[in-house]
Nucleic acid binder design. Structure first.
Lengths: 161, 161
DNA sequence: GCTGGACTGTTATGAAATAACATAACCAGT
DNA sequence: ACTGGTTATGTTATTTCATAACAGTCCAGC
């Protein structure tokens, strides 16, 4: 979390807690069952941490926060869980931050983010890349994945600045 | 360079050499002079390496290749040069590769890349983000920078695959 | 020629990610 | 249930990527 601004404490919170969190985890369990994948303990724990966070989490934040009583996880534990969560579409990596967020948009999609340099929030949105994808296809390029990340200031932080 | 394909040696080469390279470096000198910036020795050397490469270069590739007689540079030397080159628009960082390319498009622009997972080429293009930027502005978000990177297969590698 | 700012050199360290291999859990077919 | 294959985890170590901190140098403008 950057905290490059002067209005700490006024940032919005997006993390899930209590019942909302439980529901989200159960939904993930269900989607795993559908695709014959297993939401094992480390995977579930990492997803839980992501869902509960107010901003993108770095891998080593997850590693540090992993243990119930303060014991960190080993790096591969978390990186493997993240790989799984990305593969299933439960989480996304934000390349320009080296950080991870839980997926907040239903259904298969290209993930895109508006990242606020002030509050650190990363708002996921569904980009309109129709014309771009057409143009790429026209050159004979075959697209497998797209990364779209915008950096700047969210409306709230702009107002408080 | 990934080299995940079976047609090594048939990949195209994009690096500048000889007179083309000299001309590009002189052009960079001129643009620096215009903006009262200095293309100092380490900056010029790193730009030269980027311009001469056939694919994006990692920071430690640059560090290793830096010295005339095989002596590597110290990391800060190269990272500082890269920072400068990015600031002046002479180079771009490709987030999804942790690598750098020389800028191949004239004038101020949003950089976007088609990255071939086979040959490693990263083709720069000028994206058409009008509707996206409008949509972001409509939400009150103020954009400072955009990262757009597509991964896949270029036309050439698709044909050889 | 002095001075202030920009740049470089150097040492050290911090942060991010993965390799490699041993062990354990799951589950499908018999 | 056994068993053999597959998938996932645990653990140690290492590699890759990037920056902090500070001393010294260069250079433009006064």
């Amino acid at each position: 979390m950057p905290m490059s601004c002067s209005h700490h404490g006024e940032h919005e919170h997006h993390g899930l807690h209590g019942a909302s969190l439980s529901r989200a985890l159960e939904a993930a369990e269900a989607r795993c069952a559908d695709s014959r994948e297993r939401l094992t303990a480390p995977r579930r724990r990492v997803l839980e941490l992501l869902l509960g966070a107010d901003a993108p989490m770095k891998a080593y934040d997850l590693i540090a926060a992993y243990g119930d009583a303060g014991e960190p996880a080993k790096p591969p534990t978390v990186y493997r869980a993240l790989e799984f969560l990305e593969r299933l579409g439960f989480a996304h990596r934000i390349e320009s931050l080296n950080a991870y967020v839980p997926c907040r948009i239903e259904g298969g999609h290209v993930a895109a983010f508006l990242i606020c340099d002030c509050c650190g929030e990363a708002a996921e949105f569904q980009p309109n890349l129709g014309s771009e994808l057409e143009a790429m296809a026209a050159t004979g390029y075959q697209v497998r994945a797209v990364t779209l990340e915008a950096r700047g200031l969210c409306a709230g932080c702009r107002a408080h600045a």
